[in-house]
């Protein structure tokens, strides 16, 4: 297996999907000649030409809607938002047209489309460019939402999404684009809705998605090294569909849960997971479910404070320690 970046993994998925199916195309701002604002589409214009790799004007509502119309006709467009923060000017198209179309037509129409792009704070670009709207979109029946944390997951989830007959939102992360992982060259699919246990442990489960998974893994490492606590890390990977069975299995196994997200705390993903656990696995809990989220304010610009605003390993470790766990090697 080759060690490639998250960015290259996404690029590979799009390339392989486009080689396999002439109906797949990519459109978005700067995806063609510029090779992508974050270079995710590097080289695709040369490989597939301007008919299929399409630079759009800065007109998210227009091109998102146009792509939905094309998907209704059977094409399989991939729409890149330069960031998901910019999807808000297209939100009517995504919700009322992509998500509702099948329902409103009584099942006569389906919309096989992928919306993708980065959705993250932490890069010093201020509140307008730092949204993490996975909770907004996962709220909508008709949409599917996934948040890959690794290069391997990015490729497998994107290939599944492109082949899916429903609209799928893929929330990537600019901080992850350069991270590397082992990725098979040949195409493979990771089913949407399948969580991944990224670290095993017996004392507590950290449940996360997207980049927060890496934060959780770092915290788990520190917990093991410094506190003798064996934390396992469950990466949801997909928000909707949601791997409820994997979540409940974790509760059953470790009886303690700390939720980690870069989403904000109110009406966010963690709140939803917590509600789910208390409803379906209350008796398996030995402690309250704790939640580590972004600090509840618009994303701040100032660099040192922005680092504080997003969850880091330290905050996750602190939350786990609040559970009153005593590790094997703790004093």
């Amino acid at each position: 297996m080759a060690l490639i970046t998250y960015r290259e993994a996404l690029n590979q998925a799009m390339r392989q999907a486009m080689e396999a199916d002439p109906n797949v195309l990519l459109m978005g701002e700067e995806v063609a000649q510029f090779h992508g604002a974050y270079k995710v589409s590097q080289g695709l214009l040369d490989a597939f030409g301007p008919k299929r790799i399409i630079d759009t004007p800065i007109s998210e509502c227009g091109f998102a809607g146009l792509a939905i119309g094309a998907a209704m006709m059977g094409l399989r467009p991939i729409v890149e938002f330069m960031t998901w923060s910019f999807s808000f000017v297209a939100i009517d198209q995504i919700i009322n047209n992509a998500a509702n179309m099948r329902y409103m037509s009584g099942g006569l129409i389906h919309v096989p489309i992928v919306f993708r792009g980065p959705a993250n704070g932490g890069v010093n670009v201020g509140a307008t460019h730092s949204h993490t709207p996975e909770n907004f979109y996962a709220h909508i029946p008709g949409l599917k939402v996934v948040c890959p944390a690794t290069a391997y997951d990015a490729k497998g989830l994107l290939l599944s999404a492109i082949e899916d007959n429903d609209p799928v939102c893929i929330m990537e992360n600019t901080i992850l684009y350069n991270t590397k992982g082992e990725v098979p060259e040949s195409p493979y699919r990771i089913p949407l809705g399948k969580a991944d246990l990224k670290r095993d442990g017996k004392d507590v489960t950290l449940i996360a998605h997207g980049r927060a998974t890496l934060t959780a893994l770092e915290a788990a490492q520190q917990l093991a090294e410094k506190h003798g606590i064996e934390a396992q890390v469950l990466d949801l990977r997909s928000i909707r569909p949601l791997d409820e069975a994997a979540i409940l299995a974790c509760v059953q196994k470790t009886n303690r849960i700390v939720l980690v997200e870069e989403n904000r705390p109110f009406c966010g993903i963690n709140s939803q997971i917590a509600a789910l656990i208390q409803e379906k696995a209350f008796d398996d809990l030995d402690a309250p479910i704790l939640s580590v989220s972004a600090i509840d304010a618009p994303q701040i610009y100032s660099m040192p404070l922005e680092k504080l605003q997003l969850p880091d390993a330290q905050r996750v470790v602190a939350a786990v320690l609040r559970l009153g766990l005593r590790g094997a090697s703790s004093p």
Partner: peptide, 14 residues
Amino acid sequence: GGQTPLGAGIAFAL
């Protein structure tokens, strides 16, 4: 007005 980008998209697909 929400249907107008869809209309452009139908034309695009053709």
